[in-house]
Amino acid sequence: MLENCNNGGLTTASLSGKPALPNDRRQHARHVSVLRVAKINTPRSEELCLVRNISGKGMMVHVYSDLCVGDPVSTEFNSGKPIAGRIIWHREGMIGIEFDESLDPDSILSGTNSVPAAPHPRPPRVGLELHGRIRVGSRYQTVTLCNISQGGANIRPSEPDTVLEKVVLMVNGLPPIAGSVRWQDEEHAGIEFDIPVSFEVLARWVPSVRRQG
């Protein structure tokens, strides 16, 4: 089921059937069930996670590394607006996050909680500093992987003057990923993958890279 979580999209949503409450309490009592990819920033690193449900006071999240109760965290959806909170429980790969302040779950999921709103929402990207290679035709070039999402990556080529188009990105622990360079400047290039990387593959890979580093 997790294989279908491409590009951070919302795949399911439902509201609980609880009786209506006064307006100032309804957003806190309402729980929205979701399957939404997000980025979670912890005191030690950042990684991808899967949000299972959310309310005005917090959310339940599936994570892929060891986190501790009491840790401060912030979570980002497509809008890029961080939502601060702390971990209040942790068991079997799931954590409960309590927000630092009450929020409207609908605005979080739609991205309208971002001020100003993100002009071009994109899948959550995880920052890295990892050596790899790209293949351009029959030639190979070393690169530094700066960040990655299910849909693309930012790289720093060792030969920045080379004009890139179609490439295959290769880094330890992931299969070769074909893509197209959508932009390039004096130092970096942005790759859009031909086929999005499986969420679970990427979510498990990021913590493994952190541990090896």
Rank of each mutant, 00 (worst) to 15 (best):
E3Y: 07
N6D: 11
N7W: 01
S16N: 15
P19R: 09
D24F: 15
D24I: 12
I40D: 04
P43N: 10
V51H: 01
R52T: 12
R52V: 10
N53G: 03
N53C: 07
G56M: 08
G58N: 08
V63R: 03
S65W: 00
D66W: 01
L67Y: 12
S74K: 07
F77P: 03
N78L: 15
W89G: 11
I97P: 06
D100P: 01
S102G: 14
S102E: 15
S102M: 10
L103G: 01
S110G: 02
G111P: 09
A117E: 08
R125K: 13
G127Q: 05
G127P: 00
L128I: 08
L130Y: 11
L130F: 09
H131C: 00
G132R: 04
V136R: 03
C146T: 04
I148E: 02
G152M: 06
I155E: 03
P157I: 11
P157Q: 09
D161E: 14
V168P: 02
L169T: 09
M170S: 15
G173T: 10
G173M: 10
A178C: 11
S180Y: 10
S180N: 14
Q184D: 15
I191W: 06
E192W: 05
E192M: 12
I195W: 00
S198K: 11
L202A: 05
A203Q: 05
R204N: 15
